[in-house]
Design a protein around this nucleic acid. Structure first.
Ligand SMILES: NC(=O)c1ccc[n+]([C@@H]2O[C@H](COP(=O)([O-])OP(=O)(O)OC[C@H]3O[C@@H](n4cnc5c(N)ncnc54)[C@H](O)[C@@H]3O)[C@@H](O)[C@H]2O)c1
Ligand SMILES: NC(=O)c1ccc[n+]([C@@H]2O[C@H](COP(=O)([O-])OP(=O)(O)OC[C@H]3O[C@@H](n4cnc5c(N)ncnc54)[C@H](O)[C@@H]3O)[C@@H](O)[C@H]2O)c1
Lengths: 207, 207
DNA sequence: CTGACAATGTTAATAAATTAACAATACCTC
DNA sequence: GAGGTATTGTTAATTTATTAACATTGTCAG
């Protein structure tokens, strides 16, 4: 199914919100309610759901469980996909602890580090392998997605290795923009950008 | 100056990249070079710079130092702004360590936590104050921006407090979407969304 | 049973963001 | 110093994303 990247992001957010609803024992939700929780419009929600071909039970809103399922069939893959974190420092540990076990179709199965203090230990719930074994481990465990949280200077090299060893998608938290072949999906995020954006609009609002 | 949010984000990225150039002793850069480093087009770069009214030295490209300065005059505020992290757990520490001292106009001056083990200590370079003193400290230090990294259940409450105590911008790393008054700028980021997006496009590419 | 309603799904309109096109200009070569 | 070239700044065109409009449909009150 061909979907705009923005819609994919929102589908993920919808599911996250819907999972929250289940926790509240809320089994049906209206488009405007879901929208309000995410600071978007009801039309946006309905349009996105139209794109994935989901229909509600009329007049009761969307069946929360059913919609979670439906979103799953769209954005999850059939079999689960294996994920690794490269560089299990402060950020790597935070991500590992946060992500581990959250998504049934995405398994965080390994981390890699070059620090002898860390290798062969279980850190934040994930086994840490030595950087030198990346090729072997990545191939054996069939790792498809790499989350890169090494120091900036190593980022490029690590990304190249990961691609060579079979990774098809990279989430880069490093300051360094990476270059990858066109068939590898790359997503980059830098917190500084978010903070500076907030600062800019705070400044503007004050004027 | 009124700028699209997307442009503001890119300006931040331009500056980050340009700072990297200085490190490489590269004092002039062409639009297409800058663009390539960020995986965008040269036109995009030129258009953004047009919006902020920057002109290059013709035929030599942009003067790196000058452009860094110029971007600063646009996205930074005149006096520096104080920032606090609320919840100095795994993620909070990672952010603190990363951010501290990176931007001259944004000072990370405090963190807050409710854990007695943490309060009144310096963690990741930042003094940690007790959650109970938030009002006093936030007002005294004139904190304008809060980065929220507390456990999800506390996020709403913390955000309300922060707003009440004078915060004008929030960067929320929590899973919970927040509600704030219209005059508070809110930016939210959830890594799960990024990871799921990567997973989706990896899956699609494989089909 | 029926009419008013509330919420959806969808098409059409608008707005925002990106890309293309190109004239203008400084530089370099010869 | 003339001609070719590389790069910019900017307007116009295109594409993408969001919002508005509205017909449709099941529900419920009376
Ligand atoms: N901390 C943040 O909030 C934050 C935010 C955005 C970006 N970043 C970026 O993320 C990266 C990590 O940040 P951090 O705070 O976790 O740093 P960190 O120093 O705590 O962690 C880096 C880890 O990578 C390991 N490492 C170094 N070289 C390696 C290699 N060749 N192969 C495998 N592992 C290697 C180190 O041993 C260490 O464990 C940095 O590039 C930083 O700029 C951090
Ligand atoms: N770790 C990640 O990569 C990651 C990613 C995205 C989102 N998040 C979210 O960020 C938040 C923090 O994640 P974490 O891994 O750092 O968790 P953590 O448990 O390590 O840290 C939470 C910190 O908040 C403190 N705290 C609790 N209640 C508080 C209160 N009322 N006032 C002030 N401080 C309080 C705790 O003492 C602790 O130090 C969570 O909401 C998590 O869902 C984490």
């Amino acid at each position: 199914m061909k979907l705009p990247g923005k819609t994919v992001e929102r589908l993920s957010e919808y599911r996250r919100t819907l999972l929250g609803c289940l926790g509240e024992k809320k089994n049906f939700i209206f488009s405007h309610d879901l929208a309000a929780r995410l600071h978007i419009t009801a039309v946006q929600v309905r349009r996105d759901l139209m794109l994935i071909g989901y229909s509600s039970v009329q007049r009761k809103g969307y069946d929360v469980k059913e919609l979670i399922e439906k979103i799953g069939t769209i954005i999850d893959s059939d079999e689960s996909m294996n994920v690794a974190i490269i560089g299990i420092g402060n950020l790597g540990r935070a991500v590992a602890g946060y992500f581990k076990g959250k998504r049934s179709k995405l398994n965080l199965v390994a981390s890699f580090d070059s620090d002898p203090q860390k290798i062969n230990k279980v850190i934040s719930g994930v086994k840490c392998y030595p950087h030198n074994d990346m090729e072997k481990v990545m191939k054996e465990l069939d790792i498809r997605i790499a989350i890169i949280t090494v120091p900036p200077d190593y980022a490029k090299e690590i990304a190249e290795e990961a691609v060579r060893f079979g990774v098809k998608g990279i989430l880069n938290f490093t300051t360094i923009p990476l270059n990858v072949p066109s068939w590898v999906f790359l997503e980059e995020y830098d917190m500084i950008t978010s903070i500076e954006k907030v600062a800019f609009f705070v400044k503007e609002n004050m004027i």
